[in-house]
Design a protein around this nucleic acid. Sequence first.
DNA 1: CACACTTCTTAAGGAATTCTTCATTTTTAC
DNA 2: GTAAAAATGAAGAATTCCTTAAGAAGTGTG
Lengths: 230, 230
Amino acid sequence: MTNHTVLVVDDDKEIRDGIEIYLKNEGLQVIQAKDGIGAIAALDEHEIHLILLDIMMPQMDGITATFKIREQRNIPIIMLSAKSEDTDKILGLQIGADDYVTKPFNPLELIARVKSQLRRYVTFGQFEEESDTVRVNGLVLDQEAKQVTVDGEPVRLTPIELKILSLLMIHAGRVFSIDEIYEKVWKEPSFNAENTVAVHIRKIREKIEINPKNPRYLKVVWGIGYKIEK
Amino acid sequence: MTNHTVLVVDDDKEIRDGIEIYLKNEGLQVIQAKDGIGAIAALDEHEIHLILLDIMMPQMDGITATFKIREQRNIPIIMLSAKSEDTDKILGLQIGADDYVTKPFNPLELIARVKSQLRRYVTFGQFEEESDTVRVNGLVLDQEAKQVTVDGEPVRLTPIELKILSLLMIHAGRVFSIDEIYEKVWKEPSFNAENTVAVHIRKIREKIEINPKNPRYLKVVWGIGYKIEK
DNA sequence: CACACTTCTTAAGGAATTCTTCATTTTTAC
DNA sequence: GTAAAAATGAAGAATTCCTTAAGAAGTGTG
């Protein structure tokens, strides 16, 4: 997981430099480009393992650049954008980005996503099918298929329910407070979200538990929070 | 999630002191610095887990300080600023702050954000202190799962019971007076709490002892207090 | 654009559990 | 034996959690 090179493409030098600091701090090598043309040039000159690409750039915009890059090589691309509209998000992903981060972004989140993408890259320069399944008790979470099964039976979860359950399953055994769950799932500080989370917990229990009143998987720890029994 | 140290950087002593009161009230340790230079010095001297940084400071401004700090270590940074313009907000985040609070700020919101950042960092595995399990005799305390087992059997404890038992187990062998227990668990000076603690002790014994009348783990030291037998 | 459908959020009441207090009994030390 | 300390039991107060329901917001379809 070391010695990877990341190409940062953004027209704003400050942003490039800011990102570079974080990435270097993680032991990654960084090359900068200020637009799509420069990015393609950099791809010829260096062995790049991942691209951080701003969607709004002069000369050649990010989406067009994605096309050009994909024509050359199959490299993980993470898109950056100031726009938070879902339309852009979906468009970016469909066209070829492997992940998407909106500005202003949390640097830690960015690093996590970069690492996640790099992890899929192995010695042979191919993509490894990451084992994306988490198994706890009789519960199976397939992160790629975004599906959970209980004893083989698929469960139909809503997006938020899936996120909550994923969080709890990935860190099975650990207790998460309601605030913590809210922050991780909704990605904003929680103010008055107790019932909201509680209702979702109830819904999840309804779907994964035989007897929701006496849950087998999704346990409550009094005064602290919820967890998935390991 | 306890025992974290926050560095408060602001040129106004009143603001620093005000923030310090709130943070200390949450059990956090606080170190102050009046400018960027002082902040970097403090980083060398103390183990800091989070920085509250005013964006407008003499000598070295907050944004420059952010860069310098990031060069050294990857610590969560929350920016404070009197400016509420969105341009500044985005700039601050892009450059390296993990979160942003505008003055005048709501203390509760500030605390919520501080805690949120500390939690986020902890999950990323950066500074997870204290080993998660404490073993004494046949007693096992899993601090992550917030659970205690006696000879492998899980025990269902209430929040206060868990806190008391955790305290005694972590410092197994040491005797705690009733007042000491009360202060540590309730986080307020003990007034007339002798019986209150005694009742909880009794409840704990009921749950972890085979014969509460002749306790094997939770011993009383006459005239002094309670302890967990090592 | 109206319609049905799903999902999310909020509020409120009820149920269950837990906390504290007080009175009483038991144990301990001298 | 006596006084101080500790343990016990029971009851009301307080807290926390669960559940339901209703409306808001969003999505897809004809």
